[in-house]
Design a protein around this nucleic acid. Structure first.
Lengths: 116, 116
DNA sequence: TGCGATGTTCGACAGATATCGAAGTTGCGT
DNA sequence: ACGCAACTTCGATATCTGTCGAACATCGCA
């Protein structure tokens, strides 16, 4: 059977109601992924390759997958790029205040590299 | 040289200002540790062995160490027991709103076992 | 002083994870 | 049509992590 019948493997996202808190916290506990989330909280949409992180493309792809499966981000196809967005509204619905507090905590916590 | 010159290895806690957000999120992303934190958020103090978790004592001790080193809990010696407390005030000072939101998210998220 | 209760440390181990390079897919421009 | 740009998938690897049982330390009590 063909490996890819669609453009790429259409990524699966959890429904808002199925987003798991522990998965979210775990996803956020990695510096690379936190940087991605911080960047997206300051900018609505961004291409995968343009995040201020210093890892190989394959590694970055892995982190996107973790964030996607945790329900934190969504991807939108455009040309041969993938634009990434935060599922901020979904997260606010599922865990009110969580994303806001975490983003603020990181920014205020003095461990960020002035994201945004 | 003696392995223990004090009562037990006096545990080291990070200063409030040194509490790292990613360490906190990582500590909270484990179900056993989350249960401990939830329990402590409903009850001020508790002996190590009395938490509603189902792991071996040595495993529990490991989780306490992770929580301690992340800055989430403190231990107080009493007789031959160790009483555990949440560093709620310190966390509130360092990351305002974080603990409250996370505790509420877990309780409201439908993955808890009615802690407290 | 010896024992039991309460925890911690150690050593082992299986499974998860962060990382990379190589190879593959898709779409745009030339 | 060819190649480049942008990502993903695969395979390998080193490290981390959650788990346990065994052994040890400390305290209170008989």
């Amino acid at each position: 059977m063909p490996r890819t019948s669609r453009r790429r493997e259409a990524p699966q996202y959890p429904d808002t109601a199925d987003i798991d808190l522990l998965d979210v916290l775990h996803a956020l506990s990695d510096p690379t992924r936190m940087t991605i989330v911080q960047t997206l909280s300051a900018e609505p949409e961004r291409a995968c390759g343009t995040f201020p992180v210093d890892v190989a493309p394959s590694t970055l792809s892995h982190h996107f997958k973790v964030l996607r499966e945790a329900g934190l981000i969504r991807h939108r196809e455009e040309a041969n790029r993938r634009l990434t967005t935060l599922r901020a509204a979904d997260l606010e619905e599922r865990f009110p205040g969580l994303l806001t507090v975490v983003v603020a905590a990181y920014r205020g916590g003095g461990q960020e590299g002035s994201v945004g």
